[in-house]
Computed example of a mutant assay.
Amino acid sequence: MSRLLILGASGYLGSKIVENGKKQGWEVTGTCFQNLHAQYSQVDLREESACAELLRQANPDVVIWAVMSGENETALIQKGLSGVLSHISPATRLLFVSTDGVFEGAQGPYQEQDAPSFWNRDSSLAAYCNAKLAGEEMVRSGHLDHAIVRSGPIYGPDADGRWDNRVRQLTEAWEKGERVVRSSNVLRTFIHVDDLANALLELAGSEWTGTLHVGPSSFESYYTFAQKTALRFGYDPALVEEDQISREDAANKGIKLDLRLDTSLACRSLHTSFRSV
């Protein structure tokens, strides 16, 4: 039985990797930090000595970096990922979960070989996306046996059945009879959390290395995603109002209009099936 260490196991994505990994026969250990969980070790990955001890005790065959910290992502990457790379065995496989936000967002769909770009630091998402891009570069240069996995927005229920914040905000509004407004020209490749977890587990057990865009071949706008979510939960899709954001407003608000991913390589290379919304 192969040993799998999930960094961020108590998080939204991490919990699904744990659940699905155990079903698939992995020997799973994991970490938590703010979302405490009796099943996992509470570890501050920003402490290098803690990283070293964690890797020594777990002795994993595969490590999945599924941890995130929002505004503190920079410190998490600079200190935490650096510590992991310093102490991970060369024989251990490393999977790094990244984001579609590493691209400029002017015109998708983006392929793996397209050049990423750092965000303007005035954007609210700049710290997170810039840290992810820096993390990608660290992994490429710091560990040979790696896979960098980029995805779009993640949706679906976690291991405890709780839906993601995006869907919960929609359903809570509709439950009150409120209408929501979503943009039809903000485009993304949405991915179900189960499909992302399964793709990561498939990659964990393979020898595939490099950067991979995962998700369905189809894409959605935030408007069509909300409409389809309304239908999924039995609400009237007329409760979703359509708008469009100008390029000028998008630039001023730090919104990237088109972050569609070209997922054709993943669809060809993996057995994991990616459902459309």
Rank of each mutant, 00 (worst) to 15 (best):
R121K: 14
A106N: 13
A66N: 15
R150Q: 02
G108M: 15
R93V: 02
M138F: 00
G152I: 14
R121T: 14
P157T: 11
L54T: 00
M68S: 15
V62I: 12
V62P: 08
A50V: 02
E48Y: 02
A91N: 08
K22Y: 05
S117H: 09
G25Q: 06
G83K: 02
A147M: 13
K79D: 03
N165Y: 05
D160M: 11
L95C: 15
K132P: 00
R166V: 11
Q107M: 11
D164C: 07
G21F: 11
I88N: 00
S124F: 10
F96V: 15
E104M: 11
H37Q: 05
S124E: 14
V43S: 10
L55M: 06
E137Q: 11
Q107R: 13
P60M: 09
E112Y: 13
A147F: 12
G135C: 01
E73F: 06
C51I: 05
G156Q: 02
D100Y: 12
V97E: 02
Q78F: 02
D164A: 00
F103H: 15
A126Y: 04
A50D: 08
G80F: 07
G25W: 01
S117W: 10
I154K: 15
D61H: 01
R166M: 10
V28E: 13
G152P: 05
S82Q: 08
S82I: 06
S151H: 14
Q111V: 14
G156C: 09
M138I: 04
G30S: 01
R162S: 03
S89D: 07
R121A: 14
M138T: 04
V43Y: 01
V63T: 14
S69P: 05
S69H: 05
T74D: 15
L45G: 07
P153Q: 03
V84W: 01
A38F: 08
I88W: 09
S89E: 04
L36I: 15
P109K: 12
S82L: 05
Q107I: 03
A147R: 13
S86E: 10
P116T: 07
A38K: 11
Y128K: 02
I64M: 09
K22S: 09
T99Y: 07
D158M: 05
L45N: 02
G161L: 03
E137R: 07
D100R: 01
L94N: 07
S124G: 13
I77Y: 00
Y40I: 02
E104T: 13
Q39H: 00
Q39L: 08
G83F: 02
T74S: 11
A66T: 11
A115R: 10
I64L: 10
W65L: 14
M68K: 09
E136M: 08
A106S: 13
G101S: 00
H146I: 10
P153K: 11
K79F: 00
S124L: 15
K22V: 09
G83Y: 00
A50T: 04
G70I: 01
